[in-house]
Design a protein around this nucleic acid. Structure first.
Length: 487
RNA sequence: GUCCCGUUCGUCUAGAGGCCUAGGACACCAGCCUUUCACGUUGGGUACGCGGGUUCGAAUCCCGCACGGGGCACCA
């Protein structure tokens, strides 16, 4: 059995999904897998889109294929250059850069029209002369009779004479009976009666392509082998297959992944909190954590929770993706981010923190930050917190009330003695810790009763990394100055 | 309304007929560790939507119901 065969052996029967032979063979065939992410630039890249992009990326990488990007900007009124830039920036931040330059759908309108006209010439599509008003009336009539609306273009199909003064749309001739079967790598076999599908519009009366048509033509021309997208497109797939079939083109494999919902189970929107990828970046999340979290939404691998990009590429495959929508859980994202912060090289964290504190790398305070980061990292859930916690080494902050109350007369007296002892100590963590313990013993107080006042004096707070680390980061002169300042 | 899809702890999930007195993670609670706060660690409670089948045996297969989501544009 080949490696491919084994993989499909497990995947193909997962969760009761039986994949048809055709799909199984295409899955194992020696072809280069090409996936694409195709957002429309009408707003920022949100978390749902990011996951779709991630799954496309991971799937193509897992199978040694390519990942492409297409900007679906055919809706000129709503598309903006700013949105395109934001999407590109978001994908770059997530580390999901396409293997080829992005394709602008708007640049391909001539090709879309050409394909539609070809269908028309071959008698597989027809011109329809209904006005928007007439269409609206038909829809209203259907609703009044409580039956679902299905466009009936038999007049034009049968060659009724074109009326004057109405620019036609081009509609496809859909089969009237039978059943369409669409194999889906996530959903299994999905079927629908042709009677449910009507003659959709390929080209609008102004000659521009509709979404359904443009997508089919572009995916075909770009050599897309696997269309992976949100399951809000599932029923669109039937309509697109109508076009593929009419054209005589091979249909790509489809995979419709479930949507992400907010904590209340409703479609994710701004009121649920941060949903834009760039918001997550600004809130101090690491791209690795965001991808890790997104990967675990709707997909799992045994008890594993922590996935590097490499590990994700190694393990990810479509048949293991669940079919139910999942809810966004910010607490878990935050936890994962903490995990990632703890496993990120300190140099990178230092760079992030310096940027957030507005410090140049050559700034004297930058060195103190760098010294403290390894001890700060386990205490922060995100980069914003990390930067805030490092701020005290740059300049002595205002004393917190609780910290101030830890500095009573007795405490200050102890600090004065401690300062002398420290000044006589080698400025290393081990020596400083020993000195601290020695002094506590000499003063006959608990270490805590010496450490907390010291912490208050040094950081203005009652929470910080261990005192030896803090003293080293601050340096001898600054540490003694801060102790002196409260005496 | 109609078509399509779904339903395991509060949440994300493991689970492909016996390994399930249902496992892991987040969150929550309690203990330990400790120089504070974290980190770490130990333990705890909480789930197979409901009803019928099939089977010696079902979270797993089938049917129905309920509930939820998505689509039904000259938007994408």
């Amino acid at each position: 059995m080949t490696q491919q065969g084994q993989r499909f052996g497990k995947a193909g029967r997962r969760k009761g999904r039986e994949f048809p032979e055709a799909l199984a063979s295409c899955y194992g065939a020696q072809m280069t897998i090409r996936t694409r992410f195709a957002p429309s630039p009408t707003g920022y890249l949100h978390i749902g889109g990011a996951r779709t992009a991630l799954f496309n990326y991971l799937f193509s990488r897992h199978h040694g294929g390519e990942f492409l990007l297409r900007i679906e900007d055919t809706d000129r009124a709503r598309s903006t250059d700013a949105a395109v830039a934001q999407i590109l920036e978001s994908l770059d931040w997530l580390g999901l850069n396409p293997d080829e330059p992005p394709v602008l759908q708007s640049s391909r309108e001539a090709r879309h029209a050409e394909v539609a006209r070809d269908l028309l010439a071959r008698g597989l599509a027809y011109a329809a002369y209904d006005t928007p008003e007439a269409l609206a009336a038909m829809r209203a009539a259907a609703e009044a009779q409580k039956r679902s609306f299905r466009y009936d273009g038999s007049r034009w199909r049968d060659g009724a004479p074109p009326p004057h003064g109405i620019a036609p749309v081009i509609r496809i001739k859909a089969p009237a009976s039978g059943e369409m079967l669409v194999p889906d790598l996530v959903q299994g076999e999905v079927r629908v009666g042709y009677a449910e599908l009507d003659d959709l519009i390929l080209l609008r009366s102004d000659g521009t392509p509709t979404y359904l048509h443009a997508v089919v033509v572009d995916d075909h021309d770009m050599g897309i082998t696997h269309v992976i997208r949100g399951d809000d497109h599932l029923t669109n797939t039937f309509r697109q297959c109508l076009i593929y079939d009419a054209l005589g083109w091979d249909r790509p494999a489809f995979a419709h992944i479930p949507l992400i919902h907010g904590a209340d189970g409703a479609k994710l929107s701004k009121r649920h909190g941060a949903v834009s990828v760039l918001d997550f970046r600004d809130q101090g999340l690491l791209p690795e954590a965001v991808c890790n979290y997104l990967l675990r939404l709707g997909w799992g691998h045994g008890d594993e929770e922590f996935f590097s990009r490499e590990r994700a590429v190694e393990l990810f495959d479509l048949p293991a993706v669940g079919r139910a929508a999942s809810r966004m859980d910010y607490a878990k994202l935050s936890h994962l981010n903490g995990l990632w912060i703890r496993s990120t090289p300190p140099e990178r964290l230092v760079a992030e923190v310096l940027a957030r504190l507005g410090l140049a790398p050559q700034d004297p305070a930058a060195a103190r930050v760098a010294l403290l980061i390894p001890d700060l990292a386990p205490r922060a859930k995100n980069l914003v917190e990390l930067a805030e916690q490092a701020r005290f080494v740059v300049a002595m902050p205002a004393m917190e009330p609780k910290a101030a109350s830890a500095l009573d007369d007795a405490a200050r007296a102890r600090l004065a003695v401690l300062a002398k002892a420290l000044d006589a100590t080698d400025w290393s963590r081990t020596a400083l810790e020993a000195a601290l313990r020695d002094q506590a013993e000499v003063m006959q107080v608990k270490l805590k009763d010496l450490a907390q006042p010291l912490r208050a004096a040094l950081t203005g707070s009652l929470q910080s990394p261990p005192m030896d680390a803090t003293l080293v980061a601050l340096g001898r002169a600054e540490s003694l100055a801060r102790i002196g300042a409260v005496g």
